[in-house]
Design a binder for these strands. Structure first.
Lengths: 204, 204, 204, 204
DNA sequence: ACCTACGGGACGTCCCGTTTAT
DNA sequence: ATAAACGGGACGTCCCGTAGGT
């Protein structure tokens, strides 16, 4: 990797943090300059515009974020275990960057007009959901999850609950909402799992 | 001072729409001027700064938003029915303003630094949750909901899921995520309700 | 005269001074308030708008100005003497108000757009010129001025020279330009007068 | 810095037109913005204040104006011919800009208080007068003008008459006053010229 | 006639995104 | 990659003309 390419990557990484915290409009090139130690020209050498830099920064943040939510040592074992891990892992490390989940931030920031950013967020969402879906599908195929279960519905519910709970938790400064959702998921996982008697026995 | 107060209110209402769509940093006083038809002097007579206007606008948006989620003809009957209504009503009218849910938008927008906005969002969240909590508590008191149920947990889960699903729905331009969550709630409501045998009988 | 009418007149007189010095755009109602000791409401009771006050003020200034240039003890005797007096009197008391000749000021100030003020200036000019014309005409009728003389041309020349010289004099802070013009007029008056030999004899 | 200088010049030229028409107080930076197509930042980069811009604009207008009155193909031949040309040329092209003669406008506008503008007008006047004076002096030296003639007096009379006549002409919307003065000048030129018998012979 | 409220709009500062020259 | 230049435009202050209420 050339020196120029390294610099470019460094800019993206620093910018990603700032954009994730303050949003596109709330962050200036000056902020990026200070974070990278570069001068304006040094930034503009690598990106044609603030818009272009933002796209790269958000792309980076989103891809890293999705990777964290979809890879890890816990993605092994039974489908139920994997889903439980996905939830637990989200709660333990809710964000790669300061400023909250890039997916939610990008979604809210771009909902106004920016179609490029919106597409990036959409892609990230789809990727994450696809992973969760395939876990559920595998679980059904292996008889660990009830055959009537709807993978997409389960995946969407997991993502929605976690993102929503993260928003609440950040607002309140507590993990309580995240934990509340996690517990509720235990119930849902028991409900969709086939190993019914076990949970009923243990829960009551 | 009658007329001035009217004007002030009109500014707040127009500003609320714009701030909700574009966020604090993404919206200028010029935008507010255009939306209200006023000139700069006309706006700054009523608000000391953009910050102050934003606080009033967000307060207005949040209070209207919470009111919509917590009042309505459906808040009657059994607790389970009321919770079901809360979810259904959210999905049918997910936003008072263009630009999505003020609670989520404010939460994301203010997470950076603005403590005033953050407090507003926090208050709105607490109000909403309190209403849901009391529905659950009433349900427990009336024996419609299992005595082991945790009202706060249920309320947080409802809010988190709905907000998260709304984010997904807005991103994708479909109501699918919202509907997925709604269906999942049917399962949860059945689970926490005491009229157990009915659901089990009908579902299987 | 009522007290209200007196106040109105006082406002006009004070405003006339200020408008004559600073022009319509360069003078504020606040200035008028300070000059009269009245409050805003006190001024607006008598005039519907700044524009209306300005019209009255300029009308007053112009009429006073024209009166000064066309009335006086010197308007007696031969036509040549009267013209000489008109010139001398202008130079001795070039302005009723501080700020220069209202005619020139109004003409320059109103040349942009204000048709009401422009008309006032035009009327004042016509009045002044008419007086000078009739002096010349009388002179021709009495054989004191050459029959070939053009009254309007002479009147216009007198007014133009005096106004122009006043402008120069005010700019330079000297009366020299006014005196230069006065001397030149002696030559002209001699030229148009019929008592030719006298001047030739005395001048050479 | 090439481009900036061009922009600065363009601003001055456009501003000169507007200031000449409406005066300093009657013209806003907004007007200049519209005329130049620039935004506020673009204007204030080149001038520290409205005052500074006005000085440059008036300086430009005055210098252009004086140049027009003092240069041209007619400034050749006999002194009398040159003076005749000066008058004729003024009447034919009385103003470089819309809004009348910058000298008179500035003089009236600045008579209030602005010493910077006043000085500019004064300088312009002196320059113009100097040119006319030197023509007369040359005429005297060459024996074309009577040795008793006073150059400064003649120059002041020309300037005063023309400026005054222009004011009248603009007020009335006719060139009549200008023409009246021009004709009167024929008489004066004949009077101060040495080729006496010619005019007398032709006029009578 | 005073006083206050109201909305208009000019002025000037500051900083931002971008370009250019080095 | 730096640094300065450039023009855009947001922000907030101030005062102005005007309208009402007292």
């Amino acid at each position: 990797m050339q020196k120029g390419e390294q610099t470019r990557q460094r800019i993206i990484e620093e910018a990603a943090k700032i954009f994730n915290q303050r949003g596109f409009a709330g962050c200036s090139i000056q902020d990026v300059m200070e974070a990278t130690g570069l001068e304006k020209g040094g930034v503009y050498r690598h990106f044609a515009s603030k818009e272009e830099l933002a796209v790269e920064a958000f792309r980076y943040a989103l891809s890293l974020s999705v990777k964290m939510r979809t890879e890890g040592p816990g993605y092994a074992g039974s489908a139920i275990e994997q889903l439980r891990y996905a939830v637990r892992h989200f709660i333990e490390t809710p964000s790669v960057f300061p400023g909250g989940c890039p997916l939610m931030n990008t979604a809210v920031d771009a909902n106004d007009g920016n179609p490029a950013l919106r597409q990036l967020a959409c892609d990230a969402l789809k990727k994450w959901r696809a992973v969760l879906c395939s876990i559920v599908e595998d679980g059904i195929a292996h008889g660990e999850i009830r055959s009537g279960a709807n993978p997409r519905q389960i995946a969407n519910t997991i993502i929605a609950s976690l993102e929503g709970a993260l928003m609440i938790s950040r607002l309140e400064g507590t993990k309580r909402a995240l934990c509340d959702v996690q517990e509720m998921f235990e119930m849902i996982l028991a409900e969709i799992g086939t190993a019914r008697e076990v949970r009923l026995g243990s829960a009551e």
